[in-house]
Design a binder for these strands. Structure first.
Length: 825
RNA sequence: GCGGGAGUGGCGGAAUGGCAGACGCGCGGGUCUUAGGAACCCGUGUCUUCGGACGUGGGGGUUCAAGUCCCCCCUCCCGCACCA
């Protein structure tokens, strides 16, 4: 399809790959000028695309991500900046364990073999990485610093342990990662997964909730609006009041959080999360049996049941009473699973008249309903529809007649006087659970000593390396894999020297990716996790590029860690990524490509057929970077045709230019350069390519039937085209550049500058409208005045024809582009 | 339920409030060819009495002028989801 046996030379994109890969490496064209110092006169730009997980060879999704990020990096570089376009690997993670089990290898072998494959594929795709940044998070030299960071957070009180539920497969007797749970069932054996409590490590992200929210102001307009919205949602700030309810027979009152203090008089019962320790404590003896049974039932609730949002309300009366602080009314206390133990205080005042969940519960368990806000709607006790809206207070003592807003303030103030409440803010954001009962991750650098408790591994002993042998990847009985490495586990306590055990959990791989971009400038640095000089030079990241699926995971964690590092005095900034660009996924027939769906398109096969440049161009031209690409909608054949066209035009210009440059052609060329530049600046890469295609068409005509191949304007246009093309199709551009008689490399040739003088046209087309409808087009001078233009326009025969003898109400003139004559009637 | 986004030709998609459909795919026609699944050129929203009329999910509005701004509605996609 690409080759033919015609006499002229043909475009064979795959024949030029090795040649240019070698040249680029020899000339170091893709390397930043100085990683930690030097060339300070140049503006710098740090471009990072979310680093890959080495799951196998690169696939179509990678091709999209890196085609986009590389086009951006190359563009910035061509405009004269010193660009660091970094690459590394996110190489810890579960798939390596699965592969190791299957092949009976160490996870490392599979992982690093894949990394080599991907690295070679990146080179063959022509991605302009600075390979000196390369590291892998599974290198002990890297994860050592994860451990170091963990210890700093531990010292700062930001890492702590508490009990939390893990996914547990009763058949396999093992803990499961979230991604191993498919529709509530174990991925391997299909057994229904249950939740099981386990003591685990957390980072205190909640301490940073307000700052994570506030600092989003810095990102406004630079991050996709959508991602910021998701994060705002995820943090879930909610303002209201804390209210303390005395409990009969208990010294300490019990605190609740509510966003509706105005409904306090409507609280007819009190609910404690069934799985909160408080529920157990408050349970009266006669209710013990019923409570224990209910708690057991709730604990064995499966993932599937838990996810059902419309299930009936259940609960048990604990046989105790709380006292409403404003009116002294006794209300019964229930334990229920619709109240969450880890949100707010794990207990609520229930106001069934004005909260649908409480109303559903009241209906199910026969608790009375008391209306305290008159919203003008029907009685909730009859309709079983709670009234959420604003209104005036009733049945609320002194507060009757107040509006919702007035009452909220007044009741909160009363509570403050009584010493029974204050204004309060709660967040939906939870602390970051970072323990993983997995092998292929960073060991947590803590030693458990019977006498000394939790003892940090001394810094000099880092890294705590993963064991080479003596472990099982899937031990029986729900142990962590590291727990099965008995020799590795057993260690002397760093503090007292007595017998102790290593912590056997590994860290969530999101820890690895929460600071990796700080290490790129000097990946071999040994004095600390990152080189302060390199970080000062490049960070924060100027252009961060990656998928939207990381909106509330990775991006939130990286923001948190950056702030924590800032507070530790290790970095000067509080936000890691100045600008964020999302890119879409490659899908096929409406679904993300995946092996199980059998809709995989093989990247290497596509490259083999069309060449790396055509695949790259296809990815970028398919649509806006953030949109998904349905592979069924696009075809690299179009890209191949275009690239071959450019290549051919370049080859046809092998002679010396002569004669006067064609001024009209120059104007057109510079118009295209200007338009392409604007599109690139706005990151509308697909539009930029459209302009390059137009320029190509223009030059084709110039060669065939216009100025001709020898005209200097033709050469100027072709050279500009090839330079701009190099952002998207580096191999073809390089080859064409050489054919134009230049030495390597086109990527050092710079982005063409549009000459402003050539952008001013001799004449422009002005549209003439009558009542907003186009009736004529005339050529006018670009500098024409409004008055002059109106006169000229009125001379148009077509315009007069459409005006007829109607009365002219007014004439809108927008020189030099438009005249609109508005008629009466 | 809450939050966010999107509806434009046969398709992917362009359009600082000022000529809707750039560019590409597909399709049709032509040139050159032993041949064309190559290259190059032309055409391609709908209707049309060939003057033009209509046309950006639907309905209203603002404006001299609306795909674009405002209000209501419909459909689809994404995120969160018993968050008090």
């Amino acid at each position: 399809m690409i080759n033919d046996e015609s006499r002229t030379e043909t475009y064979d994109p795959n024949a030029i790959i090795d040649k240019w890969m070698k040249v680029w490496e020899e000339l170091h064209v893709n390397e930043a000028l100085g990683l930690v110092a030097g060339h300070d006169d140049l503006p710098r730009s740090y471009v990072v695309s979310m680093f890959p997980y080495p799951s196998g060879d690169l696939h179509m999704g990678h091709a999209e991500v890196y085609s986009i990020s590389d086009a951006v990096a190359r563009y910035i570089r061509m405009t004269g900046a010193n660009v660091l376009n970094a690459i590394g690997w996110d190489s810890f993670g579960l798939p390596a364990e699965n592969a190791a089990l299957k092949r009976n290898l160490h996870p490392r072998e599979w992982t690093y073999a894949n990394i080599e494959t991907q690295a070679e594929s990146f080179r063959r795709l022509g991605v302009s990485f600075d390979w000196r940044t390369r590291f892998h998070t599974s290198d002990p030299e890297y994860y050592r610093w994860n451990q170091w960071l963990f210890l700093r957070l531990f010292e700062a009180g930001l890492a702590y342990r508490k009990e939390a539920a893990v996914n547990w497969c009763p058949t396999d007797q093992t803990v499961l990662a979230n991604e191993q749970v498919v529709a509530g069932a174990c991925e391997r054996c299909g057994t229904t997964v249950i939740q099981r409590p386990l003591t685990q490590w957390f980072f205190k992200t909640t301490d940073y909730a307000q700052r994570l929210l506030d600092d989003m102001k810095q990102l406004e307009g630079k991050w996709p609006h959508e991602v910021l919205a998701m994060q705002r949602n995820w943090i879930g700030r909610s303002a209201g009041a804390h209210i303390d309810f005395a409990v009969e027979g208990r010294g300490e009152p019990v605190r609740v959080f509510t966003t509706r203090p105005d409904t306090l008089f409507g609280a007819t019962f009190f609910v404690v999360a069934v799985d909160a320790p408080l529920a157990d404590e408050l349970c009266a003896d006669p209710q013990r049996g019923a409570f224990e049974a209910y708690r057991r039932q709730a604990a064995t609730a499966t993932e599937i049941e838990r996810l059902a949002t419309d299930r009936a309300k259940t609960g048990v009366n604990l046989g105790r009473f709380a006292i409403n602080p404003v009116n002294g009314v006794r209300i019964p206390i229930f334990a229920a699973d619709y109240v969450l133990a880890d949100y707010g205080t794990g207990a609520i005042m229930a106001v069934p008249a004005h909260d649908q969940r409480d109303l559903d519960f009241a209906r199910a368990l026969g608790v009375p309903v008391q209306v305290v806000i008159n919203t003008g709607e029907a009685d909730p006790a009859e309709t079983w529809v709670a009234t959420h809206g604003d209104g005036r207070l009733v049945n609320s003592g002194d507060f009757d007649g107040m509006t919702t807003a007035e009452a909220s303030a007044a009741i909160t103030a009363r509570l403050a006087e009584l010493g029974a409440g204050t204004e309060a803010v709660t967040y939906r954001l939870r602390d970051w659970l970072l323990s993983r009962q997995r092998f292929w991750g960073t060991p947590i650098p803590i030693v458990h000593c019977e006498d000394c408790g939790l003892v940090p591994v001394p810094e000099a002993e880092l890294p705590v390396r993963l064991p080479e042998s003596g472990y099982e990847l899937r031990p029986e009985g729900g142990k962590s894999p590291l727990e099965s490495a008995t020799e590795w586990v057993s260690v002397a306590c760093p503090r007292c020297g007595g017998p102790a055990r290593r912590d056997t959990d590994t860290m969530d791989t999101f820890v690895d990716s929460s600071w990796y971009f700080l290490r790129y400038p000097n990946p071999d640095y040994v004095e600390g996790p990152f080189d302060p000089a390199g970080v000062a030079r490049w960070c924060p990241v100027d252009e961060y590029i990656g998928g939207r699926e990381h909106a509330t995971g990775h991006l939130m964690y990286a923001r948190f860690i950056t702030k924590a590092l800032h507070d530790l005095g290790l970095v000067s900034f509080v936000e890691p990524f100045t600008k964020l660009t999302n890119q879409g996924q490659v899908i096929m027939n409406g679904k993300a490509m995946s092996k199980s769906l059998g809709n995989l398109v093989n990247l290497q096969e596509q490259i083999g057929l069309y060449g790396p440049d055509a695949v790259r161009v296809t990815m970028v031209f398919a649509g806006p970077p953030e949109d998904d690409i349905d592979w069924a909608d696009v075809s690299p054949t179009g890209a191949v045709k275009w690239l071959a066209r450019v290549w051919r035009i370049s080859a046809e210009l092998d002679g010396k230019s002569s004669g006067e440059p064609d001024i009209e052609l120059r104007r057109a060329v510079h118009r295209m350069i200007a338009d392409a530049t604007t599109a690139m600046d706005d990151r509308r890469l697909n539009v930029a390519i459209a302009r390059l295609m137009e320029l190509t068409n223009l030059l084709r005509k110039a060669v065939d039937s216009g100025a001709g191949p020898a005209n200097p304007a033709t050469r100027e246009g072709v050279e500009a085209l090839v330079r701009m093309l190099s952002c998207f199709a580096p191999f073809t551009a390089e080859e064409s550049w050489q054919r134009l008689g230049h030495g390597p490399s086109v990527s050092s040739a710079g982005w063409p500058q549009a000459d402003p003088g050539l952008l001013v046209e001799d004449s422009v087309v002005c549209i003439l409208q009558v009542n907003g409808k186009v009736r004529d087009r005339i050529d006018v001078a670009p500098g024409i005045s409004d008055d002059e233009l109106e006169q000229v326009a009125m001379n148009s025969g077509k315009l007069r024809e459409h005006i007829g003898d109607s009365q002219i109400l007014k004439v809108i003139v927008r020189a030099p582009k438009l005249v609109n004559v508005v008629l009466a009637g």
